[in-house]
């Protein structure tokens, strides 16, 4: 089986080309009423070709055309220094750092909870329903509460704040990371509980004949057996972390980050900026999932899987 990168290039490019064609069509369809309205007030009746060109170059379109987004994306990333606050790279890094912090916290929490659940029957029965319930809470509604709560906790007069000694920026990072963690620990718990229980009965019996301790069984059998499950969960988790970080920036008055950029764009009717921020976010998600995939491949090779 060749899971070749080269094999997927043609279908992916075909999909991208089809999407761009649909996108241009949608730009004509959605922008033309506004354009026609404006032109009729000026007393101009454009021909079809003129109308199409205008829908693709309007500066405050309902639906910006792909090339407008591409140009804005290029101008706001490659032409500006990454430290410039108008640079999207700067905002992306703010969001990415919260994403990575939340992803690491979520993965650690998820693995720890799964280990606890697998080893404790009471935890198995009592924790799982709460974990599932936690994901039915509308995160957009509770994110501001949680972010503000953690921000105050981390900057206020208490033992945790005194121990960590974070500045405002650090506290903001951690409180956004908490939302990422909240979204990303769930797939990890579910996947790891399944993974830690994946060894066959015969393998568990084998460990018992050696009178191995449960820690030895965990380290030598359950954890290695759960590795494929962990990577599948982490791919879902890392994408959820990014969503969490963006959501944490949206309603909390954050000044920087992709979420803040989206919100400012929508206040000012800057649809092109919104779209370039969205595209960048999806590129980021793709890169993060691909990195997890690469680590997975390396680990599979080390663990001697059939190529």
């Amino acid at each position: 089986m060749r899971s070749g990168f080269g094999n997927s290039v043609v279908p992916v490019l075909t999909m991208v080309a089809a999407l761009i064609v649909i996108w241009y069509g949608a730009a004509i369809w959605l922008n033309s009423p506004v354009i026609l309205d404006r032109l009729s007030r000026e007393g101009i009746t454009p021909d079809f070709f003129g109308l199409v060109l205008r829908t693709w170059s309007y500066n405050r379109p309902i639906m910006p055309a792909p090339h407008q987004v591409a140009i804005d994306l290029y101008n706001s990333t490659l032409t500006l220094a990454p430290s410039n606050k108008r640079s999207l790279i700067y905002h992306a890094w703010i969001t990415l750092s919260a994403t990575l912090l939340g992803f690491v916290m979520g993965t650690v929490l998820g693995v720890a909870l799964a280990i606890f659940i697998v080893h404790n029957r009471a935890a198995d029965r009592s924790l799982m329903p709460w974990i599932i319930a936690s994901q039915t809470v509308p995160i957009l509604a509770v994110a501001p509460v949680i972010v503000v709560l953690f921000f105050n906790l981390l900057t206020g007069q208490n033992l945790i704040a005194q121990a960590l000694r974070l500045n405002a920026e650090g506290a903001q990072l951690v409180s956004k990371g908490v939302i990422s963690m909240y979204l990303s620990f769930f797939p990890v718990v579910v996947g790891m509980v399944k993974g830690l229980r994946s060894p066959e009965l015969i393998q568990i019996d084998l460990m018992r004949t050696y009178s191995a301790s449960s820690f030895q069984t965990l380290r030598l059998l359950r954890l290695p057996a759960a590795v494929p499950f962990l990577f599948a969960s982490m791919k879902v988790g890392v994408a959820a972390s990014l969503v969490g970080a963006i959501v944490a920036e949206l309603p909390t008055g954050a000044q920087s980050g992709i979420g803040a950029k989206l919100l400012i764009g929508s206040y000012n009717g800057q649809t092109i900026q919104i779209w370039s921020a969205l595209i960048l976010a999806s590129i980021l998600a793709g890169i993060l999932v691909a990195i997890v995939g690469l680590v997975e491949r390396a680990s599979v090779r080390v663990m001697g899987a059939r190529p």
Partner: peptide
């Protein structure tokens, strides 16, 4: 005692040497 099961029950992520080493590690 040493127990041999109906199936080999080798750990697929360990090579043969490491599989034999499993009880010795424990």
């Amino acid at each position: 005692y040493g127990y041999v099961f109906q199936a080999p029950a080798l750990f697929p992520w360990r090579n043969i040497e490491k599989n034999v080493a499993l009880p010795l590690e424990i």
